[in-house]
Design a protein around this nucleic acid. Structure first.
Lengths: 228, 228
DNA sequence: GCAAAAGTGTTGCTCCTACACCCATGG
DNA sequence: CCATGGGTGTAGGAGCAACACTTTTGC
């Protein structure tokens, strides 16, 4: 009823933790703030939610505006609303995390006005607001999720080598994995399609594979439980 | 900057999916709405977030006010903000789920004014707003979580029998489990303490156990990974 | 003494882990 | 021909699933 609308309302924002993988380690895309507060400090891309705009749409819009990213894997993380997390007053932020493939990575100068850059997830600069806490929560989620859901593919090129895949898992889980066992297990799942294409490089070419989402979805419907 | 505050703001609420277990099946605590919209319809307990109030605090306050529950396991689920989910206008709701032990269940008449009641998770009445969707999301989360985190204990009495524990898992996972294998696995984890107390009833008494959180936390720190 | 739930071991099999060498290519 | 990463099989052990009967109690 009308009076419910007389409550003072917090401001509502979205923030995105954007993960990438460069073949070596996990990376995070940050933007340098162009306004106060925290002018000049690195921060997660994000901004205010419009009225009449779905939360996920707001996150995608901010990603597009601030980092020129679109069509990425995006999932809600959780909402951060501790009073005092924003010096301007009560601001509640719905956090998302995104996974982007190397071929989607924005080129330098791709982002307008504000500066955007990739940082290693293990060597982060100081961040604005409580963005460090949000980022750590996203890292925890990713580390948990990657073990029992095949989200790793969202961080690799559409066509990838098994070694790339293994390097990704080693980077995220933070420990070395046995090459033979890893490949055996992965191929046994039977949702990777070996292609007749090979990587290029100065050494022996590696066979490329792609993820067969259709087959994976079918397996899941049959009660299959992915786990690495 | 001042102008950031001139954005129109959605109203912000919290809603709680409260799970219980009666020894037979999973249950959900609902309240009957006493105001429009959806007057008289069953709904999740919840309400508006106060300025200067943390989100989790708001959820606990609403639980206390509407269901007299306190000191329960409570965790954020996710935030629902699709425009149109509330006929009164833009309302964004941060959803939580709670797990309560039988001895915490509110007695009839314990809740003031509004009516509260437990429903079987498999026989729910029509719900207000998008609360059905929130509830399904909470069920999914619980089913996933219970497999790799020992949250089941939060739904059982402090002291419980292994059969109760098995019945809980069977109810949530929706399939029968082998008694001997279940007990063997559970006891091998070594974080259940067998007590010298026994259940009462008209048949052979069962030994009571309790969960040793201290031991469990220590195992987790050593890299232990719970999974049933 | 009977109905009802508690409690208990073994076996076969599957899946996991550990482990080392040859292959293909570019330079 | 050398440096670099790609690719492959096996054996031992751990853990999982399948399975049935005896015990204790209240009535």
């Amino acid at each position: 009823m009308a009076h419910t609308y007389e409550y003072p309302r917090p401001a509502l924002t979205v923030d995105c933790v954007v993960f990438g993988f460069d073949g070596e380690g996990l990376q995070v895309l940050l933007i340098r703030r162009g306004v106060e507060p925290f002018l000049g400090t690195w921060a997660l891309p994000g901004g205010f939610v419009h009225m009449e705009e779905d939360l996920e749409d707001a996150a995608r819009r901010e990603l597009r505006e601030e980092t020129s990213l679109s069509d990425v894997f995006l999932e809600q993380l959780r909402t951060f609303g501790t009073p005092g997390r924003d010096p301007r007053g009560r601001v509640v932020s719905v956090a998302f995390y995104a996974l982007v493939r190397p071929e989607q990575h924005p080129a330098k100068g791709d982002t307008d006005a504000s500066e955007a850059a990739w940082f290693s997830a293990t060597a982060l600069p100081p961040l604005a607001f409580d963005h460090r806490e949000i980022l750590e929560a996203a890292l925890d989620r990713l580390r948990g999720k990657i073990r029992y859901q095949p989200v790793g593919f969202e961080l690799l090129p559409k066509r990838f080598t098994l070694s790339q895949f293994q390097a990704l898992y080693e980077a995220i889980l933070g420990r070395p994995l046995d090459k033979r066992n890893f490949r055996k297990k992965l191929l046994a799942f039977d949702f990777l399609i070996p292609l007749d294409e090979f990587s290029e490089g100065s050494h022996r070419p590696a066979r490329l594979h792609r993820f067969d989402r259709r087959k994976y979805d079918a397996l899941v419907r049959k009660g299959f439980h992915f786990e690495i």
